[in-house]
Design a protein around this nucleic acid. Structure first.
Lengths: 345, 345
DNA sequence: CTGTTAGCGCTTTCAA
DNA sequence: TTGAAAGCGCTAACAG
């Protein structure tokens, strides 16, 4: 990685280092045009590429924004990543990516690495958890973030504050109204569904999942309905699939049409996929709703009822874009929770 | 971004800068254990975080790997990104992300930025094009890459070499056998489909698209079939959708069952989505095949016939992982191209 | 307006 | 084994 340096350019142009710097990299002061031209020529001839590392070191600001996600290939995260990327572009920064396995310990590593690179800000998009096994990891992550903030860094967290993080300067949480939206979904669902409800949730202690469960139950209660049974499984397609498999017999054995709320879209897809080969059709034999409104899943049939979340905006906001409005979602009722007309049966 | 520095640590521990460096950041030489312990304590107390920028500057190696994609939210790219990310993790590097709008000019910018950051290697995942309007952009991109390689950088390009790039040292192309695989798909399709074929392709000049078209036509020819008509549209879902809309009447007006090959999965989904509300059912009234085997689309019904591409491996390979085998794909015939049994009609 | 000169934080010879 | 010192490439006072 040995490119030519500023001083080489300066020498070739026959000017001082400072002048070359002023010409090539935006300074408030602008040297005379003739000398500037000479410098640019020299730079061009040498194929000069400014060393961003050295610049960052000299002005202590890296132009980097760090993004922590569980899995960049997960459409939920990649949508957020797009938003972060856009914000970064506007701010003239670059995005540093870290995928973690989802454990706070891993996230702590990532944050430390970002801090080492002197990222101007860090966005954490993974979901927070309060599970016992994550306790120490959470504490360490919180400490790391705290230190980073104290050193002048900015942190944007999606959804929920990192457990134990003191609300330091520069620490910013993008609130996602999961609970309210889930309540809204439940109410709208209750309006057209008379049977029982069932929730397929992620592991207990996952904030996002817990919020959505709580909200849904509240919505049900507000609609005068009994609380739904909750099944715990993995917070991903595989989890939904497993739950679906386990549910098939039960649905077939009952005459009551069940309304299933999976706490995110990919889980809902998993449920549906598991049910289909068992002969359980959606929405004929049961109905299914999800949460997130993942774009790639929009062509899925039956179209999935869900709650639309502006994921890109979430990313943008977490990355500190000032022009993005606070997050709100919308309930989207689609085919997967329609009551079939008699003639369609 | 003012954290404590190595010299502060050294002073607190009462040792020299050099010793502190040797203790904290792996050196071949190891100071005495008692002194090392003192240094570690001091570092801990001060919350020392090594400045990666400064380290990079001093040893001229940044530990960065740059990734250029068109759109990180596109499942094709995010799958590749995951592979790159994994490789980076193994190499103990971090991924720098750049999304471009797909024009070579943008990609050139991204490469320049990576070069400025002294990325150890750069992965370019966007598809190459030879269109006239991209000519200058391509040339500039090629020049930029060339310079980067000459300065010791490593480049991994997915699919096709950058147009005009001289095969410099460090320049590496991950070959994706698009043409062969498309030919294979055509042959297998021809075995069970007697009617006409039609190809929905991206804009002419897009290598990936062109390769798949050419391969498909060759496969058809090898199977003794006439060449398929080719419709050009956008290389994305919207393009497929548009083509599907335009095709609906024609399909309904003909008694011949058409087999449609969309050159990638999201286009195939777009076609299917456009056809459905027109009453054209797949595979009853026409059949559809795609390319890529995007994971998120796997639950789509009718299950899409396609060509599986190991996208993660592609990413890993492009990022210079030595343990990943060369890329090969597999034809996957699924429901969307099945000939319906009479009883199902 | 231009040039000189300290650093930015760290690694790494080279002496001691 | 430890320490002193010379950079790595660039920016930003400060001086001319």
């Amino acid at each position: 990685m040995a490119a030519s340096t500023l001083s080489e350019v300066a020498r070739l142009a026959g000017v001082s280092l400072a002048t070359a710097s002023r010409v090539l990299n935006g300074s408030s002061r602008k040297p005379a045009e003739d000398i500037a031209e000479r410098v640019r020529e020299a730079a061009d001839k040498l194929g000069y590429v400014p060393n961003a590392q050295a610049q960052a070191l000299a002005k202590s600001s890296s132009g980097l924004i760090g993004l922590v996600v569980h899995d960049i290939a997960d459409p939920y995260f990649s949508a957020i990543a797009r938003g972060v990327q856009e914000a970064a572009r506007q701010q003239n920064r670059m995005v540093l990516l870290a995928s973690t396995t989802g454990t706070p310990a891993d996230e702590k590593e990532a944050v430390a690495a970002f801090a080492a690179r002197r990222a101007d800000s860090i966005v954490i998009a993974g979901s927070r958890s309060v599970r016992e096994e994550d306790k120490q990891g959470n504490a360490e992550l919180a400490a790391e973030l705290d230190r980073y903030c104290r050193n002048g860094g900015h942190v944007g967290v999606v959804g929920h504050p990192v457990v134990g993080a003191t609300a330091a300067e520069g620490y910013h949480v993008v609130e996602v109204p999961n609970e309210e939206l889930a309540a809204g979904l439940a109410e709208q669902l209750a309006a057209s569904h008379n049977g029982a409800f069932l929730i397929i949730a992620g592991p207990e202690g996952l904030y996002t999942s817990d919020d959505r469960v709580r909200g849904f139950q509240r919505g049900l209660a507000d609609a005068g309905r009994p609380a739904a049974e909750v099944i715990r499984t993995g917070f991903n397609r595989a989890g939904g699939f497993e739950a679906g498999k386990a549910l098939a017999e039960r649905i077939k054995g009952s005459s009551d049409r069940l309304c299933i709320f999976a706490v995110n879209d990919v889980m809902a897809i998993g449920v549906t996929a598991a049910l289909r080969p068992e002969g359980v059709w959606i929405p004929r034999d049961a109905t299914v709703a999800g949460f997130d409104d993942i774009e790639t899943l929009r062509d899925f049939r039956p179209a999935l009822s869900t709650v639309h979340l502006p994921l890109e905006d979430i990313g943008r906001l977490a990355a500190g874009d000032p022009d993005t409005a606070p997050i709100s979602g919308t309930v989207k009722l689609r085919r997967s929770t329609e009551t079939p007309v008699e003639s369609q049966l």
